[in-house]
Nucleic acid binder design. Structure first.
Lengths: 399, 399
DNA sequence: ACGGCTTAATTAATGTCGTCATTAAAATGG
DNA sequence: CCATTTTAATGACGACATTAATTAAGCCGT
């Protein structure tokens, strides 16, 4: 309800933001497209676009087809007006990628993390080294970098400097943003990895065009990002969307978070593999790491009744979890992402069916349930969109 | 992300809306308070306030205390600039109330509903008769009515004419708004009852000052309203917040919605009483209706181990359900309302404790869990705020 | 009771910005 | 090569908020 005041200047800011956002997200577009899309008058569009071109944010890129009449010029965001860095701090590795403004990858590096010794300072060091590395590899000057986005698998509490809680990394209130900021003065944006994945799928993947969507990230653990009215929902301290630790089986299996019956204790990759091992009466599941173990389970389901049953149950739990999201958020789309969701992609029909059993008819009918389209690197891509989102919101004005 | 265009006029509209909202919600206030609160300049505030006074929306109400210097005038919304009607269509009755703009009750009527024969046309008839009745009783002219808000215990799908699904009333896609609109040309606003309760608690009760809050409505069934960034969250088809039918006990008790293990099947009043009866090996619970039966259970807990256990379990389930809300929405407050929640108010400490066990530490620490402050008629009060919310959003300009 | 002081509200001057109406530019087609 | 059509740029106009200056309206001490 609390509305900010409006002044004459804010009109221009808003219109700059609206036009620049459209050009970025739906471009290339002509001035006429913008007139139709925004409802602004032609002179207003030309005026603002003229400014954006003068400032080097937007460029004209050839004329559009015309059958009679002056052809309109296509407008696009200038790809090299700036570059952005996206970082994925996962449970097993730090990945740093460099993008131009069309989200073309200019370079990338990856640093594996030791399974136990994930010191915050080490991670911050990898991030800083990674930034230097990708800039050097692509011979891009530091001054061209608009900002650095970091997606972290854990709860990221925003503030002057973002603070991270990550049980899987053994982190409690780690001031990761400060640690990184000590090594660089590039603008930093930290966010939860599921939220950056959601942002990427929203702009470039399965979420395009939706106003209300939920993105579920199923990996070793389970997370989610909720987009409401086109914007990632953060809540009071930006830890909203902790789907993995909602109770699905009251009093059920113990979860690594300390509670019982969490969704993550049933459908996270680690939990699925555990349940499979228990179903095999303790015999270990073949494979060196979770990814190959999960793959082994999926492969075994062709022949093994036990494996089949574990997967069916997984679909049931996951479907019920999705149904909860549908009942609570009433989204147009539920998008399943993360490596484990991709590996379990074959369960999609069973998941849909289970969700249909548990969800209310009306909201279930409104929602589609689908897989993500951007693969596993979506976290870094989404992280890279964070500085861009800020740029768009500010109408292209850097601070 | 999609920003609407801004034009010069929209500046004034926005500022009118911001100032009028503040005066309504936090008034009486002085012009200086508004200057400080909104960041607008003094002349801008005076100018807009002058318009609002000329139009009869706002009135000056005496001078403020002053110790030297010209005393500032207090500004308040003109109580009788318009009146609003709030309707609560519950499972057992239709209640119609008339309010002035300070939300003082000018009149009210109630029509009981037969337990099974709740024909939509009958309900619409009660609503229309109720409007006539309260207007006549208070000798208020129909032309003074700003609008009619209706809170319905069921899923309300917004559209040109809102459509209602209410399992407990046996309604499926009932065009209630059309049925009412056929009998009156007053502006109508339909919404889910939990959402109107949330709106009331948000403006006048336990939600004041919060930007992110969840309001749980526990009656015979269970519902919730989610306020994000100060605004009720509706989702794609405004059925968001169906907390009652989220799965809490996978594969558990059958729910009247057809699924299994829904929260409502454990903590709704009907379910609690059922569980108590089962714990008494089928002996009926004393009392004629659910309210007295629940009261009997609460009273019995003083002496009966069985009753005590049923209540403890209820607190456990409810706490886990609240924990899910906390994990997913990361609110500042969780407010429990509805008659059953009030009757179970003594369980609040146990509910808090159970929620603490199941929720993640960080979001749990951010949230307070409390009881609603507005009692049971909050649904009608909240419904009456719907036309007012529209008026405020439009800067006081009626259509 | 009467200046001096303080705070509130209004008036005047200035500047930003979008709209409407008009003009210039740049194509196609007979 | 000129008429036609569509796009882009100009200019007059009006809506509004801002800063600075004035006027209004109360306290307080002598």
């Amino acid at each position: 309800m609390e509305l900010a005041r409006a002044t004459n200047r804010s009109v221009r800011l808003r219109n700059r933001s609206a036009l620049l956002s459209r050009i970025f997200l739906d471009g290339p577009l002509t001035r006429q497209d913008l007139v139709r899309g925004t409802g602004l008058s032609q002179p207003a569009v030309s005026n603002v676009v003229g400014d954006l071109i003068d400032e080097g944010l937007v460029m004209e890129a050839g004329a559009a087809e015309s059958d009679g009449g002056r052809p309109s010029m296509m407008l696009r965001v200038a790809p090299r007006h700036a570059v952005v860095v996206g970082v994925d701090v996962g449970e097993t590795r730090v990945r740093v990628e460099l993008f131009d403004l069309t989200m073309t990858v200019l370079g990338s590096v990856e640093y594996p993390l030791e399974h136990n010794g994930t010191e915050p300072a080490t991670v911050a060091g990898h991030v800083l080294a990674g930034i230097d590395r990708v800039l050097a590899d692509s011979s891009v000057a530091r001054s061209e970098v608009l900002g650095v986005g970091v997606g972290v698998s854990g709860v990221v509490e925003q503030g002057t400097h973002a603070v991270v809680d990550a049980q899987t990394l053994g982190w409690h209130r780690v001031p990761l943003e400060r640690l990184i900021a000590e090594g660089t003065d590039l603008p930093l944006h930290l966010d939860n990895g599921a939220k950056t994945l959601g942002q990427a799928e929203m702009w470039f993947g399965a979420g395009r065009g939706a106003r209300h969507a939920v993105f579920a990230l199923v990996g070793s653990g389970v997370g989610a990002a909720v987009v409401t009215n086109g914007v990632t929902y953060r809540g009071a301290s930006s830890s909203a969307g902790e789907w993995g630790h909602t109770t699905l089986v009251y009093g059920g299996r113990p979860c690594r978070c300390g509670a019982r019956g969490c969704l993550e204790a049933y459908v996270g990759a680690e939990a699925v593999i555990d349940r499979y091992r228990e179903a095999r009466r303790g015999r270990p599941v073949p494979g060196d790491d979770e990814e190959s173990q999960l793959a082994a389970l999926v492969a075994a389901a062709e022949k093994s009744e036990t494996a089949r049953r574990v997967l069916d149950e997984t679909a049931g739990y996951l479907g019920a979890g999705v149904a909860n999201l549908i009942n609570l958020f009433n989204p147009e789309r539920v998008v399943l992402g993360g490596w484990a969701a991709m590996a379990l992609g074959g369960l999609l029909p069973a998941i849909r069916e289970a969700a249909g059993r548990q969800a209310l008819r009306a909201p279930y009918a409104q929602a589609t349930i689908e897989l993500g389209r951007l693969g596993v690197d979506a976290v870094a891509l989404g992280a890279a969109t964070l500085p861009i989102a800020r740029l768009l919101a500010n109408g292209g004005i850097r601070r």
